[in-house]
Amino acid sequence: MSRKIVFLLPLLVVVVLLVFFAVGLRMDPRNLPSALLDRPLPAFTLAGLPDRPQPLTGPDQLTGEVALVNFFGSWCVACVQEHPMLNRIQAEDVAPLHGIAFKDEPAATTRFLARHGDPYDRVGYDTTNRIAIEFGVTGAPETFVIDKAGVIRHKHVGPITEDVWANTLRPLIEDLQKP
């Protein structure tokens, strides 16, 4: 009997390995957990876009209510894809949606918003090339959910899809909005 187990052992090891591979191949290596989760917003200073009221200039503007902060850039193809969803989110008016434009030119950002619509309540423009590192952002688009206390509660990497909005972000926002 113990002999049989010895012969089955290699098969067992292979099965375990295959399970690991199967799971590993399904995981997206770009989907990194944010190190900033459940931590207060980092300090930052942003400029506003010329000719656009309501600039997002610092973290103090993000406390007091649950808010979404979306990192975007006119250079970002996936942002173009995401933009109609952002317009819809703004129309649903669940929580304020702010935008942070990074690694961009102000004129290009303005043109981008004119062309695809401006779904943002406030827009901050990064002049330092630092904002992405401060937020641990690895690319665009990325979206953070900030709670009333100004603590980062969730990060979504990549375009917000209808599924992500309906099943992850919106329920989370509504949950955080409860007194």
Binding site: L32, P33, S34, A35, L36, P42, I133, E134, F135, G136, T138
Partner: peptide, 9 residues
């Protein structure tokens, strides 16, 4: 400083 923002990754 970078680990604080991006994790051990």
């Amino acid at each position: 400083y970078l680990v604080d923002r991006y994790g051990d990754f």
